[in-house]
Design a protein around this nucleic acid. Structure first.
Length: 334
DNA sequence: TGCCTAATAT
DNA sequence: CATATTAGGC
C-alpha cells in the first residue's frame, strides 16, 4: 500500500473504503458520496461478509454502523483495529454519549452521527495517515509499551475533557498499534558485539559496557543483554563439548579426572579476531592441534555465531590457563 | 534505583 | 529457535 507513502497527485482519491451497514438508504448515500470523491468503496451488511472481504482485499479504512441487528459490531471493531491496524469509523443515528464511548473504547477512531454528510467523508483519510504515522513512529522510536499506553491514555483523558462540537475531532487512538519490530542481529552487528567482548574481556562484558562500545543507533540495552545471555550459553556449550571431547581423547587410564584448567578448546570460537587480541596482550601462545574441530564441535553454527565452515586446520587450541593465568576461569561457566 | 542475569514468554 | 520480557537479586 503505497498510496500514502508516495506523492500521489490525486491523493486521497483512490482511498479504499469498506462500509458495513445494513441500511439500504445509508448504503446508497455512502456509495454516492464515495464515488463523488473518487474513493473506491466496497460494502456489505454483515460482519461475516466484512471479514470475508477483509481476508481477500485490502482496505485503508472501514465504516461500521454501530447497531446492526444480531451483530456484535464492537467485537468486530476491536478485532480489526487491534489486529489488522485498520482505522475504523463507527456511525449511527444513535449519537448518545454512551454509544460514542463504546465505539471509541472498542477501537474506533471516530464516530459519525447520521444522517451522513459528505463533509464527513472529505477528510476521513486523515485517520489512515495518522495510523501510518503512529505506527512508523513507534517502530522507529521503539517506545516502550507502557510508555505508549500511558501516553495514549493521557491523550484520551485530555480529549475527553475538551468540549468538542464536531464528531470528527474525536480520535482517540487506542490499542497500542505497532509492536516494536523484532530486533535482528545481523552478521555485522554480531561482529561488533564480538569485538566489544574481545575488548572488554568476557569477564567484564556487561550489557551496558558492550552497548557503549558497540555504539549502534537503535541498539538497546535489552538487545545486548539478551544477546549476551544467548552468547554465554553458546560458549558454555562449546566448553562442555570440548571438555567431553578432550576427555574422550584421553582414552584409557587417565580419563579419571580432567582438571578444569586442562580444558582445551578453540579460542577462535570465542574471539574471531584472536590474533589481534593475543598480539595486543602479549600472550605467549602454546599450541596443540586437534583433528577436525568441526566434527568435534558439532554444535557450532547452530546459533549462527560462527559458521562451521569457518574452521580449518589453522585453528589454534589453547590451554585456558595460558590466557587467564590468575585462576579466573574456575567456577561457574568460565 | 539502576543494572544485571536467570527464567520465562512469545 | 531467536529474541523479548519479566522477575528478583544486588
Amino acid at each position: 500500500m503505497n498510496l500514502f507513502t508516495t506523492n500521489n497527485p490525486s491523493f486521497p482519491a483512490g482511498l479504499r473504503v469498506l462500509a458495513v451497514d445494513h441500511d439500504t438508504y445509508d448504503f446508497y448515500t455512502i456509495h454516492h458520496i464515495c464515488n463523488q470523491l473518487h474513493y473506491q468503496v466496497t460494502s456489505c451488511s454483515t460482519i461475516s461478509q466484512a471479514k470475508q472481504l477483509l481476508s481477500t482485499s485490502h482496505f485503508d479504512i472501514i465504516l461500521v454502523e454501530t447497531h446492526i441487528p444480531q451483530q456484535d459490531t464492537y467485537a468486530f471493531v476491536q478485532q480489526v483495529t487491534s489486529h489488522l491496524k485498520i482505522p475504523v469509523i463507527m456511525m449511527s443515528l444513535d449519537n448518545r454519549t454512551c454509544s460514542v464511548m463504546d465505539s471509541i473504547s472498542n477501537g474506533a477512531c471516530s464516530y459519525w452521527a447520521k444522517p451522513l454528510d459528505e463533509n464527513l467523508f472529505k477528510n476521513m483519510w486523515q485517520h489512515v495517515v495518522r495510523q501510518h504515522l503512529v505506527q512508523k513512529e513507534s517502530e522507529a522510536k521503539g517506545l516502550k509499551k507502557r510508555g505508549r499506553e500511558h501516553l495514549v491514555q493521557m491523550e484520551s483523558e485530555a480529549k475527553g475533557l475538551k468540549k468538542r462540537g464536531r464528531d470528527d475531532e474525536v480520535h482517540v487512538s487506542k490499542q497500542p498499534p505497532a509492536k516494536k519490530a523484532r530486533f535482528s542481529w545481523t552478521d555485522d552487528l554480531h561482529q561488533k558485539f564480538v569485538s566489544a567482548l574481545n575488548h572488554l574481556g568476557i569477564k567484564d562484558a556487561k550489557p551496558k559496557k558492550v552497548l557503549k562500545i558497540m555504539d549502534c543507533p537503535g541498539l538497546e540495552l535489552q538487545h545486548v543483554a539478551s544477546h549476551l545471555q544467548k552468547y554465554k550459553m553458546y560458549l558454555d556449550g562449546v566448553i562442555k563439548n570440548s571438555k567431553m571431547n578432550k576427555k574422550n581423547n584421553e582414552t584409557q587410564a587417565q580419563d579419571q579426572e580432567i582438571d578444569e584448567t586442562e580444558v582445551f578448546f578453540s579460542l577462535t570460537d570465542f574471539f574471531p579476531d584472536l590474533n589481534d587480541y593475543i598480539h595486543n596482550n602479549n600472550y605467549a601462545v602454546s599450541v596443540e592441534s586437534i583433528d577436525s574441530p568441526s566434527t568435534s564441535l558439532p554444535q557450532l553454527g547452530q546459533y549462527s555465531m560462527t559458521p562451521p565452515d569457518q574452521y580449518d586446520d589453522s585453528d589454534v587450541f589453547f590451554n585456558l590457563t595460558d590466557l587467564f593465568p590468575n585462576d579466573e576461569i574456575h567456577n561457574g561457566m568460565w
